[in-house]
Simulated assay, not measured.
Amino acid sequence: MRAEIGHRLSRLSADLAGARQPRPPRYNRRMYRAVLIVLLLVLAGLQYRLWIADGGWAEVHRLSEMKQELNAANERNEIRNDALQAEVDDLKSGESATEGRARSDMGMIKRDEEFFLTIAPPGPTPKPTPNDSPAER
């Protein structure tokens, strides 16, 4: 029995000695470093595509500015087109508008009218005021 107790004590002391030694890690540290590096490279690649590459934020910002400029140009052209359309409608609607246009732009006169041409004296010409109509100039 003493031999058996001694054998058990020696086995117990061996187990305790093994418990005091550091256990080997359950994972491979080199493998985790490699995985971490790969993940960081993937993250860097995605960040590059997000901020710099075609279709990224820089291009979206540039395209939105271009869209705003085109919208502003379209609004200006719409206003101009509306004014031109109003003038066309006015010219189509009546003879007086056509007559006024011919008189102011081409200097035409009616039959049995007298035309007097006045020439300004040489020197500085007065600037027209905003209230002046083209016929008064």
Rank of each mutant, 00 (worst) to 15 (best):
M1H: 04
R2S: 09
A3C: 01
A3G: 13
A3K: 03
E4H: 14
E4L: 15
I5P: 00
G6P: 00
R8P: 00
S10A: 15
S10W: 03
S10M: 10
S10C: 06
S10V: 11
R11I: 09
S13L: 15
A17K: 04
G18K: 14
G18M: 04
A19R: 04
A19Q: 06
A19P: 00
Q21D: 02
R23Y: 00
P24Y: 01
P25K: 02
P25C: 02
R26P: 00
R26N: 01
Y27F: 07
N28E: 03
R29A: 13
R29L: 08
M31C: 00
M31L: 09
Y32S: 01
Y32K: 02
R33Q: 10
V35H: 01
L36K: 14
L36W: 06
I37H: 09
I37G: 01
I37F: 07
L39Q: 14
L39Y: 04
L41H: 00
L43C: 09
L46T: 06
R49N: 10
R49I: 06
R49A: 14
A53L: 05
D54I: 02
D54Y: 03
G56I: 06
G56T: 04
G56C: 01
W57M: 12
A58P: 00
A58W: 04
E59N: 07
E59H: 12
E59D: 15
E59V: 09
V60W: 06
V60M: 12
R62K: 14
L63T: 10
L63A: 14
L63N: 13
E65A: 13
E65F: 10
M66H: 10
M66W: 06
K67A: 11
Q68V: 10
E69I: 07
E69K: 13
L70R: 06
A72C: 00
A72I: 07
A73D: 06
N74Q: 12
N74H: 07
E75S: 05
R76T: 08
R76L: 06
N77C: 00
I79L: 12
I79N: 04
I79Y: 05
I79W: 03
R80D: 07
D82M: 03
D82A: 15
A83Y: 07
L84K: 02
L84R: 05
V88P: 00
V88T: 02
D90K: 13
G94T: 08
A97T: 06
T98M: 14
T98W: 08
E99F: 03
R103Q: 11
G107A: 09
M108D: 03
I109A: 15
D112P: 00
E113F: 09
E113P: 01
E113W: 15
E114W: 08
F116R: 12
T118Y: 06
I119W: 01
A120V: 04
P121S: 11
P122E: 12
G123H: 04
P124H: 08
T125Q: 14
P126R: 13
P126Q: 12
K127R: 12
K127L: 15
P130G: 10
P130S: 15
N131W: 09
D132E: 15
D132Y: 02
S133G: 05
P134W: 12
E136N: 08
E136L: 08
R137Y: 02
